[in-house]
Amino acid sequence: MTTPHRPTADEMAAAHGTTIPDVAGPGLRVLFCGINPGLWSGATGWHFARPGNRFWPALHRSGFTPRQLHPSEQGELAAYGLGITNVVARATARADELTADEYREGGAALTERVTRLRPQALAVLGIGAYRAAFGRPRAQVGPQDAAVGNTAVWVLPNPSGLNAHYSLDAIAAEFRRLRSTVEAAGVSEG
């Protein structure tokens, strides 16, 4: 495991507008899709890196991983058939800094990425991001009626610590519903 790094204020400021590589490849069980990297992630290069983000605990509590991974261990996700990408690639302090055009362009780029990588499921983490990127204003959390090719699309709650609408247990429960569905489809891990 990489030694955890707490970015300095200067490193965080310098991370604005940067991008971090996807953790993805062909044949994944689930490709998780964040809204966009925060500055903490931009500074460290790790997805969902900010302390207080509930992605990694929810991933473990839902049974996707046998233990809670640290963001610096994101490279281990492939062994579990999991990956991470974002709707919009550029790091910002807040998601409200993103424009409607960025969401639409990000949705088109995400569709291309999913078509190329062909994961069993795409899980967009944030209902607002999904609605904006895919032009589906009435979408709700859970499985969606629209697929990307043969890839099922799910919307899961945003795991940001700022999302007060969902507790960690409620987020993990939604992740668990997705995992159960993926497993029921008969795709084996890793």
Rank of each mutant, 00 (worst) to 15 (best):
T2D: 03
T3I: 14
T3G: 05
H5A: 06
H5D: 02
R6A: 14
P7Q: 12
E11I: 09
A15E: 09
P26D: 13
P26H: 14
G27H: 11
L28I: 07
L28A: 04
L28F: 03
R29T: 11
R29L: 15
L31V: 08
F32P: 06
C33L: 09
G34K: 08
G34R: 07
I35A: 03
N36F: 01
G38L: 05
W40K: 00
S41E: 15
G42W: 07
A43E: 03
T44H: 04
G45P: 01
G45T: 01
W46R: 09
W46V: 02
W46Y: 15
H47D: 09
R54P: 02
F55R: 05
W56I: 08
W56G: 03
W56Y: 15
P57K: 09
P57L: 07
L59F: 08
H60V: 00
G63N: 11
T65I: 12
P66S: 11
P66T: 10
R67I: 13
Q68F: 09
L69R: 09
L69M: 13
L69V: 10
H70L: 07
H70M: 08
S72G: 15
E73N: 12
E73G: 11
E73V: 11
E73P: 07
G75S: 15
E76L: 15
L77F: 13
I84Q: 04
I84C: 11
N86Q: 12
V87F: 00
A89Q: 11
A93N: 05
A95Q: 10
D96I: 10
D96C: 10
E97M: 14
T99S: 15
A100E: 09
E102I: 01
E102A: 01
R104S: 12
R104E: 13
R104D: 02
R104A: 15
E105A: 11
E105H: 03
G106C: 01
G107S: 03
A108P: 00
A108Q: 10
A109K: 12
L110G: 08
L110V: 05
R113G: 01
V114S: 01
L117V: 07
R118L: 06
R118W: 00
L125K: 06
G126W: 06
I127E: 14
G128N: 15
Y130E: 03
Y130K: 02
R131F: 04
A133M: 08
F134Y: 11
P137V: 04
V141F: 03
G142I: 09
Q144W: 08
D145N: 04
D145A: 05
D145Y: 01
V148I: 15
V148S: 01
G149Y: 02
G149N: 03
T151G: 04
T151C: 12
A152P: 00
V153M: 12
W154E: 07
V155F: 04
L156D: 10
L156S: 10
G161K: 11
G161E: 13
N163L: 07
H165A: 15
H165E: 15
Y166C: 09
S167Q: 04
L168S: 10
D169K: 14
I171L: 15
A173D: 12
E174G: 00
F175T: 07
F175A: 04
F175Y: 12
F175L: 10
R176E: 14
R176Q: 14
R177G: 02
S180R: 13
T181P: 00
T181L: 14
T181G: 11
V182P: 06
E183F: 00
A184T: 08
A184G: 10
V187G: 02
S188P: 01
E189N: 01
G190C: 05
